[in-house]
Design a binder for these strands. Structure first.
Lengths: 131, 131
DNA sequence: CGGTATCCTTTACGATACTG
DNA sequence: CAGTATCGTAAAGGATACCG
């Protein structure tokens, strides 16, 4: 008789990888720089963040901040003045990522050159598949 | 006289955030599970990876593996047999991420519940902006 | 100042079929 | 087995303009 109750780990997708959910929350093109800026420079207004991060547009900055707020990584404080003032601050939950961010920065400093070298070597070989 | 040589850090975009380049290389929906699988279970064939990761399609798996190979994180070894056999293995460069991955897994175990709680609280408030 | 509103492009990802 | 080809979807992001 065949056991039909068994399922491969693959049946529930990438949850076999325990860090996939963390990646989904913290690591995207703009969320990481936003969290970094809030951690490095403390509580900031919308326009300060915008200027510090640079190329981001207000639309995208708002979207990312809203999601970070929803996930408990950031708080938003509205001051009803004229002109209006809104301040964003990283939460304790957000700050708990700091050692990991530091580790990633260190990894980058130590290994990014090697990645670039691998890339150049790969691209230099005409036999390699190209997108 | 005005110094026109000065530029705000924002002039070169998110490079103000030292981990942005690392994020670009390592953290996307599928690259992280792929690296995790290769690190946890060692050298594997294409179909083994495919089955272990689960929901990924062969097209996407190929795309991600190619990029990881180009970035020096993974090696691809082709054996001309019938049927053909291809083995993927994580490199020393890829393995150097292991402590960081472990740290992220630990962070998830410790804080994912808090994130879910924050989400629920946010969603429960009808006054919150919705997408 | 702190956003929204529109419109557009790019990119990842997904479904399905097919091949050396 | 290890992919490739071709289609389509959806989300992220970008450009620009406008508003309370």
């Amino acid at each position: 008789m065949v056991d039909t109750t068994w399922r491969p780990a693959s049946a529930d997708p990438e949850l076999a990888c325990p860090i996939a959910p963390v990646v989904d929350i913290v690591f995207s093109r703009w969320t990481t720089p936003i969290l970094w800026a809030l951690h490095e420079y403390g509580r900031q207004r919308f326009v300060e963040l915008e200027r510090r991060i640079g190329a981001i547009t207000p639309k995208v900055l708002t979207q990312r901040l809203r999601r970070l707020e929803r996930d408990g990584m950031v708080t938003r404080t509205y001051h009803a003045e004229v002109p209006p003032r809104v301040e964003y601050e990283i939460t304790a939950l957000g700050r708990s990522l700091a050692p990991l961010f530091a580790g990633l920065a260190e990894w980058g400093a130590a290994h990014l050159d090697e990645v670039r070298g691998a890339r150049d070597a790969y691209d230099a070989d005409p036999a390699r598949p190209r997108p």
